[in-house]
Amino acid sequence: MQKTSNALDALNRNRAYLILALVLIFALFTPRFYTMFNVRSILSGSALYTFLGVSFTLCLIAGHMDLSVGYMATTGAMVVLGMRTNSGLPWWLAILIAVGVGAIAGTINGLLVTKAKIHSFIATLGMQFVLRGSMYMYCNGAEISVRGEFTLTDAINRAPLKFLPLSNLFICTLAVVIIYLVVLRNTRFGRNVHIMGGNRETAWLAGVKSDKLTTLVFTLSGITCALGGALFAISQGTATPTLGEKGIPPLMVALTATILGGTSMAGGKGNVLKTFASILAIMAMLSVLTTRYGKFELQILFMGLALAVAVIYETLRNYARQKRVGIRPNLADEYARETGKTLHIEK
């Protein structure tokens, strides 16, 4: 019984990889899925969502929600092309300004949460609308393109190794995932983010400066999203202020992938690699759906269902866990210490 339970736990913990594997097997029966062009499209298409996904995961681990990730990326996209095409700045400076704008917006989010004591859900929702309105005003509601200057666009979309479907954009994305993975696992900053998200009281007792750390988390989220948006815009050669408004909002992909990847909605637990695997699974599944059925409505339906299933599952698990160990699971550890008996708790 215990073995079965452990196996199920292991499967659940690694569900992101399982879902990815299942989708890849399902894709075997989809015509022209495993072509060099298609795999490269899927991987490159996952870039923006990965930047948003890791940002969202970081915030959620820290115990907060950043609903502005989508518009933060749109801002990065609009600013980088605006600075390049409209203002004529060199690419490096345009990217730097876009990332700087993301950093400022992220820091404001952090300050609203820590200093103004506004719940992150409300603060970032507000920021979402501020950024949306600002971008509409900045570009007069219209798109900005590279106006025929495709040198950097071609470079970022190029695959350095011809036999592998990995574009430079996807390699940049991998680098970001690895950086986040290492930072969250192997640095004091990462450990503090986990402690703070898991239990604010414990974090305080451990001397973690929660306000400073929270602001830093939001700033990093802003930087990452703006950088993702900027790279995405360069790869597309255009930026639109209405990205995802009529189809699948990037926020929804990031949110779904984060929850599917096993990041706890209560904070303190999460893994950017699993978020990344979930994004790959979602992108592969969307490609399968478009290939087999051709209708965008199915993509939206699939995203909605995936999110709903993940959230319902998480909620039920949390409910079951709380029912078993009470709302203070740390008491289970005390119980184990005092009695020498282990209370089986899902972590």
Binding site: T35, F37, G45, E143, K246, G247, I248, T290, F296
Partner: peptide, 23 residues
């Protein structure tokens, strides 16, 4: 003739173009 619609969404239209090229 196969007609595909992205429902007025730029990202989806880009995605459909990739899909179409792949076919």
């Amino acid at each position: 003739i196969d007609v595909w619609s992205p429902n007025w969404d730029q990202a989806l239209q880009d995605q459909l173009i990739d899909r179409a090229i792949n076919e």
